[in-house]
């Protein structure tokens, strides 16, 4: 089926949204649509990656991203192994390179990597012969999350151009936010950020977005509200006083959502802190929440990425 795509994305790696052009993004999203169909069939198997090896190299714990990549690889017929490595034992760049050299000797074809250090995926890609997919590097990028968000939105709105999208929460520490901001603006959406100033980069206004400290103003007229996870350690680092104050001013509930369009939809990259950044009433409302659709899109999107990278290597 691969030959039918106007395939412009061929890798050699997927390290971030920055560096992708519009055609590459569109080709990945088009491909994702086909895998969505495949994933809803009883027989979900394809042989696109038959005989190839995929290594999931996770230096940070992950449930859904790792599972999503594993499933994507297996459905495409690859041999998949998961390597979970405690980041504490590989804290330094030297050791990361050692790990890369070791893995490279096993001749994998695809290497999915998550690491707590920004730039780790980039560094690995310089040291191995296979395709590297960044599954999240520090506070830098999480490209497959942004692509699956864009796919989910495209499925609902057709076109992202002109959509008003608010990204709310811990932007400064979020790789998801950076990738989403880059991708959504590339696709023509109007992106707004809303958080207490302690959770926003000082230079956020230079990112081509509007910055708000008040949810009512930020959500005004929005088509989509993306909520980011608030890490508990933000409380001890004096970024946020308490979960109750955070929820009062930034937790997405019906009252705050009422400032957005009546048809507004809500997204969250997961895992959620209910009652902190999002009210259960919103998270569980199937008419508003796209959260489970994001997860479904995630598997198909990752299949599309793996397939495109594998093709690019032949």
């Amino acid at each position: 089926m691969a030959n039918s795509y106007r395939d412009t994305f061929t890798g050699p790696h997927l390290l971030g949204i920055a560096g992708l052009n519009r055609l590459e993004v569109d080709s990945l999203l088009d491909r994702t649509a086909d895998f969505m169909v495949l994933n809803r069939q009883r027989n979900k198997h394809s042989d696109v990656l038959g005989g190839q090896t995929l290594i999931n190299l996770f230096f940070e714990p992950s449930t859904r991203t790792q599972g999503s990549f594993e499933l994507a690889g297996k459905r495409l017929g690859a041999d998949v192994i998961n390597m979970a490595i405690k980041s504490s034992s590989v804290a330094k760049g030297e050791t990361l390179i050692d790990t890369a050299v070791t893995l490279n000797a096993m001749h994998p074809d695809l290497l999915v990597v998550r690491h707590s250090a920004s730039g780790a995926a980039e560094l690995l890609s310089q040291k191995v012969d296979c395709a590297v997919i960044n599954a999240g590097d520090g506070s830098h990028e999480h490209p497959t999350q942004a692509l699956l968000d864009a796919f989910t939105l495209r499925a609902h709105f057709g076109d992202l151009a002109g959509l008003r999208i608010a990204i709310c929460g811990d932007v400064v520490h979020s790789r998801v936010a950076r990738s989403d901001i880059t991708l959504l603006t590339l696709l023509g959406a109007e992106v707004r950020l809303c958080a207490p100033p302690t959770l926003l980069p000082g230079s956020a206004r230079e990112w081509g977005v509007q910055v708000f400290y008040n949810m009512g103003e930020a959500l005004d007229g929005c088509d989509v509200v993306m909520v980011l996870r608030l890490q508990r350690e933000r409380m001890t680092s004096a970024c946020v006083p308490s979960t109750r104050e955070y929820f009062r001013y930034y937790g997405l509930d019906r009252a705050k959502l009422s400032a957005a369009k009546e048809s507004a939809l809500v997204m969250h990259p997961g895992p959620m802190n209910r009652g902190v950044e999002i009210d259960s009433e919103i998270a569980d409302d199937p008419n508003i929440s796209l959260i489970t659709e994001q997860v479904e899109s995630g598997v198909a999107l990752r299949m599309a990425v793996l397939a495109a990278l594998a093709e690019g290597r032949t």
Binding site: T198, M235, A238, C239, V240, P241, S242, R244, E245
Partner: peptide
């Protein structure tokens, strides 16, 4: 400004 005026953390300024 800080819980217990201890100089660490952030008190509930908004509330």
């Amino acid at each position: 400004l800080t819980p217990g005026l201890a100089g660490n953390g952030l008190a509930e300024i908004g509330l």
